[in-house]
Design a binder for these strands. Structure first.
Lengths: 270, 270
DNA sequence: TCAGGGACGATTGCATACAATCACTTCTGT
DNA sequence: ACAGAAGTGATTGTATGCAATCGTCCCTGA
């Protein structure tokens, strides 16, 4: 049961970052976005003064932003010395995906259970439909981009859908953790050169469908397969040599890597 | 192979929090500690001025601390209005333990693998032995407390051991995530009235032994069983009614709850 | 008696100014 | 020529002061 699509769908793509909100959180978001986007490269020295000038604020909001980014792992800073952009956590990629799998499976299951409770009239949270509409808009926006062959925005939209599903689960704690994790994983993707495939995109509608149906176990299973697939895809494309901590994932990576070089590539090169 | 125990072992218990370090992070740590300890109760209004007076600093460090605590989920704050201590995430308990399980299994495995690489002479990180000594001290300290029947400090020591194992894994990202998770779980325990059992304490030496032996899969399996057991224990003691998202855990909770009321209690009360 | 509007108090958000600390350079002595 | 130490510049850490914003109380009017 899709919600009323009378809201402007594409608008949901923009406000995720919250650019000029006047709050220091926006400075933190802005810096983080620049780090993830590669504008601020790992190892680069960042002084409070330069950031203050760059984002046209005083040093105070910059300081608060830097502290937050430090606790998120994007900034390494030493007292009285200064701050640097942290290295991209490529060695942690497999583990990050593993944690994400656990998190998202939980949130998908909870979201579906909450949907079931909603339809049976047990509770009617006001946020539900707003988030549900936002997801509908994101799905449509992603479809449009896929149809247009413009795959770059898909990474961000993808993350927003997953976070919105977490919000649907009603757990602020899980949503917060997942958001942090998504930033890290987005950063990982930024370190990669090859474009991401669009093969996994249709999964989202199926997962949201399971949530709408209130089928917790199905939503969980679908989400598990979805995240696992993206994990395998990342490990394959990035050419991570150390085997995954998950035996199933490791085996699948090995299997796909072994027989023919690259199915996508025209001429296989051993 | 236990490391040289010539260092002051008990000293490792104290500096984990880092009380008066002069840095704003210490203010953040102090406030978080008070929240977890229950000094600042959930829902309590906290103004920057009152906190500044309480910790004898200016409003600026307090502001930075509040921002950090907000992104960690300990503080809910609204712009221009104020901040409150967030509610204890009891509904997320099962999920938090699930994520912790994934995280810790990964860190234990990585730590053991790194130990194996260390013994084969591939690399010799300088931090390794320092952390390994710290763990040894924590294990001894915990043993002493257990022998003395003083179980209260065990919760903190327990967390420190798990975090130290994460540090042993060499992944700053995983360590950071786990630290955040540990704070949350410690907070959950603070909401509980019954004392924690000491039954799981001996597990730690076995896990560390597997790490020392460089046996990654054994360390991972042991850690999985250990965290799962603490998860079951929490769900049982706290009387969480909704079944765990993990079928195995849910079944075990149901099984132990069904037959006799409470094996620990002298006179079972249905 | 109750609804609506305006003013006040309190608190946050921000910018500026100053003190403390560290890294680097340069100077001196052997 | 080289080692060590003091000075200097830059950057962070903190305090104070002011402006913007929100919640609340009270006042006015019907």
């Amino acid at each position: 049961m899709p919600p009323s699509p009378d809201e402007p769908a594409l608008a949901a793509v923009v406000p995720a970052g919250a650019a000029a909100g006047g709050r220091p959180a926006s400075v933190q978001d802005a810096i983080r976005r620049d780090i993830i986007a590669g504008v601020l490269t790992p190892g680069a020295r960042v002084t409070e003064a330069s950031l203050a000038q760059r984002y046209d604020v005083s040093r105070v909001p910059v300081r608060e932003a830097l502290r937050g980014l430090e606790s998120e792992g994007f900034i390494d800073s030493r007292p009285h010395v200064g701050s640097r952009v942290a290295p991209i956590p490529v060695p942690d990629a497999d583990d990050l995906f593993a944690v994400r799998e656990t998190l998202e499976v939980s949130t998908a299951r909870s979201a579906a259970r909450r949907a079931a409770a909603l339809y049976s009239g047990d509770e009617s949270p006001e946020d539900w439909w707003r988030i549900r509409r936002e997801i509908a808009g994101l799905l449509d926006a992603g479809d449009a981009h896929v149809a247009a062959g413009d795959l770059d925005p898909l990474v961000g939209i993808n993350d927003q859908i997953h976070i919105a599903i977490a919000e649907l689960s009603g757990s602020a704690t899980m949503t917060r953790l997942l958001r942090q994790l998504s930033w890290k994983i987005e950063w990982l993707y930024a370190a990669e050169v090859q474009p991401r495939g669009k093969r996994l995109w249709p999964d989202h509608r199926v997962i949201v469908g399971a949530i709408d149906a209130g089928d917790g176990e199905r939503a969980a299973a679908l989400m598990a397969a979805h995240v696992r697939e993206s994990r395998i895809g990342y490990l394959l494309r990035y050419g991570v040599t150390t085997p995954s901590s998950d035996p199933v994932v490791a085996a699948e990576v090995a299997r796909r890597r072994a027989p023919e070089a690259a199915p996508d590539r025209p001429s296989g090169r051993t």
